[in-house]
Design a binder for these strands. Structure first.
Lengths: 337, 337
DNA sequence: GTGAAAGCGCTAACAC
DNA sequence: GTGTTAGCGCTTTCAC
C-alpha cells in the first residue's frame, strides 16, 4: 500500500535518483525516461513525501497565517485570498487566531516558526520590537503594517479616510467625529493621519473619540458620545463599529442619514445589507491575502528584493448612510470658512 | 545556530538515543541523566524536528480542518475551538475553505491527506460516497453529519428545531413557514425532521419553502414568499437568512414581532445585535470544534472506540423577534384543533 | 540505564 | 543521461 520512491523506481526500471529528477529537474532527463517514470508514478498514485524532502532541503512547503480574530468579518476575505494563492503554489497554510492578544502572537509565531517556511502576520497588535523579534525567527510578511526592512502589504487606509472625509465635506458637513479603533492598530493610525491631513486643509472640525475595541458593542457605546459632540457625521474605525452606531442611533430615534451621517471601513458583506446600507471604505482584503502570499513566495525564492512592499488602493462605497447636511442648506456656500 | 539532537547530546555528554529518550520515554532514563539532558536542551532552545520524527513514526503532528465557508459566522467559533484544543495537544491545524463547493472538498482532502494525521470535516456538502472515500484516505471526523462507522460530532439540530416550534406553539401560532437551507445539508434535514415531528403531534400547519442558500440575500428573497403563505411565524434555516428576512420585512413595513415572528439557527454574534434582536437556536460551535479534536485525537491514539459520537445540546435563545400571535388572542384555546 | 547502529523517504553531490 | 552514495534529524531495536 505504501508507495515510495523505491517502488516507483523498481516498477519503472530506473534508479531512485531518476525518479527524484523526474519531479525536481525534469530537464536533466531523457524525455522518454521521464515520461515512463511519470506514468508509473501516476499509476501508483505516488507523491513525494514532503517530510522527507523537507528534511534534506530544509523547507516544509507550509506557510503560517496569523490573524487577530477569525470572527472579524474583515479576515475571512484575507484568509480565502491567501489560501487560494498558496494552494496554487503548492503550499499549505497553517492558520492561527490570536484572539486579539499580542502576547499570543509571539508565542504562536515561535511555535509555528519551525514548521513553516514563512509567516504572514496580519494586522498585528504587537510592538515593533516583537515584530522584529519574530522576523528573526522566520521569513515574515506583514499585512496592514509598515516597518523598515520588513516586506509588507499595505491597504491604503489613509487614502480611504481622505475619500470618506472629502465625501463629508462635499456633502456640507462641518463637524465630523472619528471613532478611533484599537490603540496599537497601524490601520487606525493611518486612518487618523489621512483624516487630519484633510481636516487641516479644509478647515473642517474633526473631533476624535476613543480608542474603542473594533466591535459592534463599542459602536453602540460610542454612538452616544458621538451624538453629544454635536457632529453631523460619524466616521467609525470599522464597519462593525459603524453597525453598532447605526443600531444605537436607531434605538434613540435618531434618523440616519437625515439627522446624522455614518461611515465605516472594510466593506464587510453586512454593510450592504443593513438598513440603511452603510457608506464605507472598501478594503481589498482578498487581494491583500493574495499579495501577501506572493510577497512571501518571492522572499522564499530568494529573488532579489523586487518589490518588498505592495500597496493596495481603497475605495469609498457611497450608500444610504450618508447624505448632505441640510442645515444650513448645502447649496449655501458648502466650502467657505 | 542549528541545534539538533547531536549538539544536545554532545553538550550533555550523552548519546543521541538518550536525548531522544529524554523526550519520548523519560521513564527509561535515570532521573539525573534526564534532568541534565533537558537542561541542556532547554538552554539551547532545542526542539525535536517534527519532519524527521514524522519520517520514522509516520505521523506529522498536523491535523486538517475543512469548512465550507470561513465567512459564514457559524464557523469561526468552530475554528477557534478546534485550534485551541489542537494546540493544547501540540498539533497544528491546516485550515481549508471549500467555498461551499463539494467537488473542492474531495480535492482538498486528497491533497491534505498526506500531510496530516487526520482531518475534521465540518458541515460537509459531499455525497455519502465521497465522504466514505475520504475516510479511506485518512482518519476522518465529521461535524454536523452522521454516517455509520464514521466518528462524528453532532449538534442537536432536530432538538433545537423542536424547541423553536414548541415556542411558536406556546405563543399561539398555527401556521409556521420553514425556510430550507442547502439541499445537501445534513443539518437542514435534521431541522426539518424535528419540525415535522412536532408539527405532526400538534396539528400545527408547517409550510416549507426552499431550498435556499444559507445567506442573507436568500433570506430577503424568501421573506416575500413566506409572507405570501399567510404564516404568522417564520423559521429560517440559519441566522444569516433570518437577518435577511428581517431586513426585507422591515423594507416592506411589516412589523416584527407584532405582525410576524422570526427565528433562526446558530446564534451568531449579530443575532443579539440586530433590531429586533433575533430569537434563535444557539449551536455550541466552539464546543463542537473542541469535541471534534478530542474525537480525532482519540482515533489517532488508537484507543478503543470509546465514544465515536459526541452529541451536543442546542438551546433556543428567546429574544425580541418572537411574540404571541394575537389574533385570535392566545388565551383563546391556543392548542385546540 | 545507556549506547551503537539501522533505517524512515528523499535530494544532491559525485561518478560514469 | 543515469546510477551510486552520503546524509537530512530523528526513533527504535538490539546489545551491553
Amino acid at each position: 500500500m505504501k508507495v515510495n520512491i523505491h517502488e516507483v523506481a523498481r516498477q519503472a526500471g530506473v534508479s531512485i535518483s531518476t525518479v527524484s529528477r523526474a519531479f525536481n529537474a525534469p530537464d536533466l532527463l531523457h524525455p522518454t525516461t521521464r515520461a515512463r517514470v511519470l506514468e508509473v508514478a501516476n499509476a501508483l498514485g505516488y507523491q513525494p513525501n514532503r517530510a522527507a524532502r523537507g528534511l534534506i532541503t530544509g523547507t516544509t512547503g507550509n506557510m503560517g497565517l496569523i490573524v487577530p480574530d477569525v470572527a472579524n468579518p474583515f479576515f475571512p476575505g484575507l484568509i480565502k485570498g491567501a489560501q487560494s494563492r498558496a494552494r496554487g503554489a503548492d503550499y499549505a497554510v497553517f492558520l492561527a487566531d490570536t484572539d486579539e492578544d499580542p502576547a499570543a502572537e509571539l508565542a504562536l509565531i515561535r511555535a509555528m516558526a519551525k514548521q513553516v517556511d514563512g509567516i504572514i502576520l496580519a494586522s498585528s497588535r504587537m510592538s515593533e520590537l516583537d515584530v522584529r523579534d519574530a522576523a528573526g525567527m522566520t521569513s515574515l510578511v506583514v499585512v496592514n503594517r509598515q516597518m523598515r526592512g520588513i516586506p509588507a502589504v499595505i491597504l491604503d487606509s489613509a487614502g480611504g479616510a481622505r475619500q470618506a472625509l472629502e465625501h463629508f465635506i462635499a456633502l456640507g458637513h462641518r463637524r465630523v467625529v472619528f471613532l478611533n479603533g484599537p490603540r496599537n492598530s497601524w490601520s487606525n493610525r493611518e486612518r487618523r493621519r489621512g483624516l487630519r491631513s484633510v481636516a487641516a486643509k479644509s478647515g473642517l472640525e474633526l473631533v476624535e473619540l476613543g480608542p474603542y475595541a473594533p466591535r459592534f458593542e463599542a459602536g453602540m457605546l460610542a454612538a452616544d458620545s458621538a451624538l453629544a459632540t454635536g457632529a453631523t457625521a460619524v466616521l467609525a474605525y470599522n464597519d462593525l463599529m459603524a453597525l453598532g452606531v447605526l443600531a444605537r442611533l436607531s434605538d434613540r430615534g435618531v434618523q440616519v442619514p437625515d439627522d446624522i451621517s455614518v461611515t465605516g471601513f472594510d466593506d464587510i458583506p453586512l454593510a450592504m445589507m443593513c438598513t440603511p446600507s452603510l457608506t464605507t471604505v472598501a478594503m481589498p482584503s482578498e487581494a491583500a491575502g493574495r499579495a501577501a502570499v506572493d510577497l512571501l513566495l518571492g522572499v522564499l525564492a530568494q529573488r532579489e528584493p523586487t518589490r518588498r512592499r505592495i500597496e493596495l488602493p481603497t475605495q469609498l462605497m457611497v450608500r444610504a448612510s450618508t447624505a448632505p447636511f441640510a442645515f444650513p442648506p448645502p447649496s449655501q456656500s458648502p466650502r467657505a470658512t
